[in-house]
Nucleic acid binder design. Structure first.
Lengths: 234, 234
DNA sequence: CAGTGGTCTAGACCACTTG
DNA sequence: AAGTGGTCTAGACCACTGA
């Protein structure tokens, strides 16, 4: 009752859509008709429709009308916390290595830099209740002023490591997720046997021009450690 | 120049944020000030601010002002196409099994149903250029009218299988992603050796009351097959 | 109290689509 | 030409925060 008029319009149309009274591709009644129906001004109707557009229920075609969206059921929201649930009791980060190196072919390829440019490599493990949960390797093109002091880098997130050079608002992060088998250095760092299944999350940090400014790989041990995602549509 | 006034306001404030002229937690100048600055009416200013709110740049506190958001750098958009890139050349879906069964403890637990309720089980593999890419198992509580005809179910997505009973607009999908080793039935279905690393995507379909209406597990073979996600912030 | 954001109105003009 | 959505105005009243 006390709710704003435009929210009543939102709810009314949402109900029509979820009850399948109107289906994807169908047109909504015109804005002028909605004005009469709800006895409100056109701006109020449009505010309600704007909410539905933002939430992915409808879209507009100028000169024609407002239409119900085909829901994109393949889109999910993934919450990937780079630092695990740090700052909690029993959580700890161990810094294994901070170095300036010449990039391997793979590193140079992923950071799109020539082989004579130096690269910072940071290797850490995340420990929970005494058990190593994840092994994290990050590569960042070297630049003056990059933090390489242990204290600064130990608890730093990927964006924080490059924040001096790039605004976090102008960065994009991309993930690739796959499975692999533990072996060699990775097994040792995670303290697992070779052949254990590992979840691999590859992170790439891009600047506003889509140029890589960081590349990292995280290995997660244990079948219990996984990621969760929720469908966007609500 | 020809762009609407409210978009000019959006761009101006975005630039201030990405250039870090104003930082997270800082206040934007008041709406009335923005009206004067840009020589527009308040509704136009508010339309611009609404865009910034939707895109996650700012938030409002009634009676106080508009403030720059702390960017949530842990949120990603994951595109998980349940049907793989089907309908493409060289792609094929093989239906291995459609059955009505009594649920195991695990199935009953995940679907939150008693053990005397029957369940449809659908097993499929996704084949690309003759290579089996994924093995898919889905469980759906049995109800009258559920499609169990091969033709109907072979190319059906999870939501389509339950669509007769539930509107896709009222459904939620949740994913859990982890790594495991191939073994037994899974190895055979994927035609890989035991001990191969597999990416596991567990899907749960929930109705509007958060009650499960479907549970599925997809196994992806091959180190090359993985998922990709992009940070939401733009 | 003056200032802020939240809601709403009753008009207006434009570009666009359709018959 | 009539109808549609997109933009915009110049007011208004409200509930809220802070001094």
């Amino acid at each position: 009752m006390g709710s704003p008029e435009y929210l009543k319009i939102v709810e009314a149309i949402k109900t029509k859509i979820t009850s399948e009274e109107i289906k994807p591709g169908d047109a909504i009644q015109s804005e002028n008709l909605l004005c009469e129906e709800f006895n409100v001004s056109r701006m109020t109707v449009r505010k309600g429709l704007a909410v539905l557009v933002n939430e992915g229920y409808i879209y507009s075609i100028p000169g024609k009308g407002n239409y119900v969206c085909e829901p994109d059921l393949d889109l999910y929201t993934l919450h990937f916390d780079e630092m695990m649930p740090t700052e909690k009791k029993g959580e700890e980060i161990r810094l294994l290595e901070v170095n300036v190196i010449k990039p391997s072919y793979e590193i140079g390829f992923n950071l799109e830099i020539p082989e004579n440019k130096h690269v910072i490599v940071v290797k850490r493990v995340f420990v929970s209740d005494g058990v190593i949960k994840a092994y994290d390797i990050k590569y960042i093109p070297y630049y003056r002023g990059i933090p390489i002091v242990e204290k600064e880098i130990r608890y730093a997130t990927f964006p924080e490591m490059v924040a001096k050079k790039n605004s976090i608002f102008a960065m994009t992060k991309k993930l690739k997720i796959r499975a692999t088998l533990a072996k060699g250095e990775v097994s040792q760092s995670l303290d697992v046997m070779d052949g254990e299944p590992l979840l691999v999350v590859e992170q790439k940090l891009l600047d506003e021009k889509d140029h890589p400014i960081g590349w990292g790989i995280m290995y997660f041990a244990g079948e219990d450690s996984g990621l969760e995602a929720v469908a966007c549509f609500d």
